[in-house]
Measured scan of single mutants.
Amino acid sequence: NRKASRNAYYFFVQEKIPELRRRGLPVARVADAIPYCSSDWALLREEEKEKYAEMAREWRAAQGKDPGP
Results as ranks from 00 to 15, higher is better:
Glu58Lys: 12
Ser39Ala: 11
Arg22Asp: 11
Pro18Gly: 06
Pro69Asn: 05
Ala31Gln: 08
Asp32Gly: 01
Gly68Glu: 13
Asp66Cys: 07
Ala42Trp: 07
Arg45Thr: 09
Glu19Asp: 10
Val27Trp: 03
Pro67Asp: 04
Ser5His: 15
Pro69Ser: 14
Gln14Met: 12
Val30Trp: 07
Val27Arg: 01
Lys16Ser: 09
Leu20Gln: 01
Phe12Cys: 02
Gln63Lys: 12
Met55Lys: 09
Ala31Phe: 04
Asp66Ile: 13
Ala8Leu: 01
Gly68Cys: 09
Arg57Leu: 12
Cys37Ala: 08
Ser5Ala: 12
Val30Lys: 03
Glu54Gly: 11
Asp32Arg: 03
Arg57Cys: 10
Arg2Ala: 04
Arg45Val: 09
Ser5Pro: 07
Val27Phe: 09
Ala31Pro: 12
Phe11Arg: 02
Val27Asp: 01
Glu46Lys: 12
Leu44Thr: 07
Glu58His: 15
Glu58Arg: 08
Leu20Pro: 00
Pro18Leu: 03
Ala53Cys: 13
Ala33Asp: 02
Tyr52Phe: 15
Gly68Asn: 04
Ala56Cys: 13
Asp32Met: 01
Val13Gly: 01
Tyr9Ala: 03
Arg2Asp: 14
Glu46Ile: 06
Gly68Val: 05
Pro69Val: 13
Leu44Asn: 04
Ile17Cys: 01
Pro67Ile: 08
Ala8Asn: 04
Pro67Met: 09
Pro35Phe: 01
Ala53Lys: 07
Leu44Lys: 03
Asp32Thr: 07
Leu43Trp: 06
Ala4Phe: 15
Pro67Asn: 10
Cys37Leu: 07
Gly68Ala: 09
Ala53His: 13
Leu20Phe: 05
Glu58Phe: 06
Lys65Asp: 08
Glu58Trp: 03
Tyr9Ser: 03
Ala8Thr: 05
Pro67Cys: 04
Arg2Tyr: 14
Glu19Met: 06
Arg29Val: 13
Arg22Phe: 10
Asp32Val: 00
Tyr9Asp: 08
Tyr52Asn: 00
Ala33Val: 03
Lys65Arg: 11
Ser5Thr: 08
Arg6Cys: 09
Pro18Lys: 04
Val30Arg: 03
Trp41Asp: 01
Lys65Tyr: 10
Arg57Pro: 03
Arg21Leu: 12
Ile34His: 06
Gly64Arg: 14
Arg22Ser: 11
Leu20Ala: 00
Ile17Met: 07
Ile17Phe: 05
Trp41Met: 00
Glu58Asn: 00
Pro35Val: 01
Ala8Ser: 08
Asp32Tyr: 00
Ala42Arg: 11
Pro67Phe: 10
Met55Val: 08
Leu43Met: 10
Ala8Pro: 07
Glu54Asp: 15
Gln63Asp: 09
Ala42Tyr: 10
Arg57Gln: 10
Val27His: 02
Ala31Ser: 11
Leu44Tyr: 00
Pro67Ala: 10
Ala33Gln: 00
Gln63Ala: 12
Trp41Glu: 01
Gly68Met: 11
Gln14Gly: 06
Arg6Ser: 07
Glu48Asp: 13
Gly68Arg: 11
Asp66His: 14
Arg6Gly: 04
Ser38Tyr: 11
Lys65Met: 04
Arg2Leu: 12
Arg57Ile: 05
Glu54Ser: 14
Pro18Tyr: 02
Leu20Asn: 02
Gly64Asn: 15
Ser38Gln: 15
Gln14Thr: 08
Arg22Glu: 15
Asp40Thr: 10
Ser39Arg: 15
Glu54Ile: 14
Leu20Val: 02
Leu25Gly: 01
Lys65Pro: 09
Glu46Gly: 12
Glu19Tyr: 03
Trp59Leu: 01
Gln14Val: 06
Glu58Leu: 08
Gly68Gln: 11
Leu43Gly: 14
Trp41Asn: 02
Phe11Pro: 01
Lys3Asn: 12
Ala42Asn: 15
Lys16Trp: 01
Gly64Pro: 12
Ser5Asp: 14
Gln63Val: 10
Ser39Leu: 09
Tyr9Trp: 07
Arg45Pro: 15
Leu43Val: 12
Glu46Thr: 08
Tyr10Ile: 02
Trp41Leu: 00
Asp66Asn: 12
Glu58Gly: 10
Ile17His: 01
Pro35Gln: 04
Ala42His: 12
Ala56Gly: 06
Phe11Asn: 03
Gln63His: 06
Tyr10Cys: 02
